[in-house]
Amino acid sequence: DLKAQEVAGSRTRISWVKAAQRAEQLTARLKIRMKELEQKRCLTALAPKLVGKAVVVPAGLLSQLQGEKETPGTFARDTKQVEQLAMQAVLAAERAAGYVTRDVSADKCGYDIESRHPRTGRLRFIEVKGRSKGATTVTVTKNEILTGLNKPQDYFLALVEVDGTDTEITYLPSPFTQEPDFAATSVNYSIKELMSRCETAFETAD
Rank of each mutant, 00 (worst) to 15 (best):
P118M: 06
N188W: 12
L43K: 08
T27K: 14
A54T: 15
C198I: 11
R102M: 12
V104M: 06
Q81Y: 01
F176W: 01
K151T: 14
S105Y: 04
D206R: 07
E127M: 00
Y99N: 12
A106Q: 14
K108R: 14
M195Q: 15
K35C: 05
T170N: 05
A158V: 06
K40C: 04
I145V: 07
M87C: 05
T101M: 05
L43G: 00
K31H: 12
C198S: 15
D107F: 08
T12I: 03
G164M: 04
D163E: 05
E161N: 02
F156D: 08
T204D: 14
C42N: 11
G67H: 08
S132A: 11
T165V: 07
D181R: 10
V140I: 15
K151V: 12
I145K: 00
L62A: 15
P173I: 05
N188M: 13
F176E: 03
S105G: 06
A205Y: 10
R11G: 05
P72L: 07
G60M: 15
T139K: 12
E6K: 02
L62W: 09
S186N: 14
S63G: 10
A59C: 14
Y99M: 12
I145P: 00
S174E: 13
E6S: 01
A86S: 06
D181P: 07
Y171Q: 06
P152W: 08
T71R: 12
T12P: 03
L26T: 09
D206I: 06
H117P: 11
E161W: 02
T170Q: 06
F125H: 09
M87K: 01
D166F: 00
S196R: 14
T137K: 11
I126A: 03
